[in-house]
Nucleic acid binder design. Sequence first.
DNA 1: TTTCCGAAAGCTGTACACAACTCGAAATGG
DNA 2: CCATTTCGAGTTGTGTACAGCTTTCGGAAA
Lengths: 260, 260
Amino acid sequence: MGRTANCLIAAARPRNLGPGGHGGTPEAERHGISNPKDPQTSPARERYALLCDTLRDRICLLDYPPGTRLSEEALASEFGISRTPLRRVLGWLESQGLLVSVQGVGTIVTDVELEELAQVYQLRMELADLIGKLSPLPPDAETVALMRSLRQRGQKLAAEPDTRSFARLNIEFFHALMRCSGNAPLREISERLYYQTTRIWLKSISHLDLAEEVAIFADEINDVCTAVELGDIMAAASIRRAHISMSFWRLGQNGGGPAE
Amino acid sequence: MGRTANCLIAAARPRNLGPGGHGGTPEAERHGISNPKDPQTSPARERYALLCDTLRDRICLLDYPPGTRLSEEALASEFGISRTPLRRVLGWLESQGLLVSVQGVGTIVTDVELEELAQVYQLRMELADLIGKLSPLPPDAETVALMRSLRQRGQKLAAEPDTRSFARLNIEFFHALMRCSGNAPLREISERLYYQTTRIWLKSISHLDLAEEVAIFADEINDVCTAVELGDIMAAASIRRAHISMSFWRLGQNGGGPAE
DNA sequence: TTTCCGAAAGCTGTACACAACTCGAAATGG
DNA sequence: CCATTTCGAGTTGTGTACAGCTTTCGGAAA
């Protein structure tokens, strides 16, 4: 009864390949020797999950800014598939609150107001606490190494701020933190809410001081990494919660105005 | 900025028609005078949401017991539609963790173990607390009236226990409680986790004492209703949390054995 | 010049046929 | 008689054409 047992509940989400998205097990797919016990590992599911992650990243990195009208046909031809399987992906993105499709108009990248976001931020703060309370996992060597690598990247970024690298590091840091919780439903929900908020924050970054934001984030990584090194997940969760709160506060102060 | 403002985030879920599912506004749909500002109110979306609720109820009331193989073609013909829009519904149910589709085999109603469910129950307990803490809504007259009606139905049910009526009342009571929270994302997540667990509980009811379970549930409704009448949502949430905890405990004691 | 109407273009939603895949049963060779 | 292979029924996944809806642009009338 190992890790594979709870795959049914996790089946809701596409296989997490991480933001880096290095290709996993290419040989296994080519030879068709995928593990028949794992329903997630089928050629169709692999393409589906990859597309979900790809498009989600494009939306959350503002490659598709809020309000963008996506063309199903264009995307389908870009990925070399038909509209039918693509629509399944778009449906999932819509269920994540990142898209909305209306007949006769198009598929539009959503844009949410800071007011509505307040509820999501409140919830994210509470869930951050729960990461420390509910089934915290003692970090393994790989997690610690990942955290240290992120800390180093954060320090490099502080020396040379860059919006896009900032966003990517933010996403990877989130996923690293998720490795510290053994509660799969909590991870899934946290991820959903995270992706709902991160692009709004990225959109408002122009109204904030990028260098200051990067410095604060580098500190956050450093603090969380220290806590993880000590195996104190509750402390890491508390730090995370505090930074979510402060991030929302800064958004309301500086980024919430009548933009543009 | 009333209720309609946060429809974008809520767009993830089909329009909640309640378990009773009385038809809503049939005239508006027939005449095509649906509010153009609300993206959820389109003829296609209406059918979609209705189908989602219908099939979810069938799964969660064990009309389709865990392990059942559903036929896309049969369902499509039953509802007088093609497989294409039906598959969208099935995809949503799969994202909710209630179905799993595998090529060449079929669409199968999931069955989860009590072990995996422990994480969901833990999370549900914490979220129940949050219902009282995050944006609790002072109950309006309609909510109080609904609660009182449910309390009465609970007392009637205690006098004449019936599994299916029990399940329906349980679902409706959950939705009534959700009216007390103004946090839309929290409501959505709570609903998702609730539906993931309720059918497992219903499946194990045969191993428990139905009369006793009904009596306990009637008490829960009564206590929560009293708290709601006083406007003390935090108290209602605490009561709810306690009952979720006790329900899980009873499941582990009596219903968790090597069934059948 | 302004306003209103209508046709056309473009989009998502739907239906249907076919491909890809799984599983089981029947046939075949040992 | 048993093991192995092959074929077929049945299922989900995919491609494609068309229907329904919305927006826009052009032209005619006031």
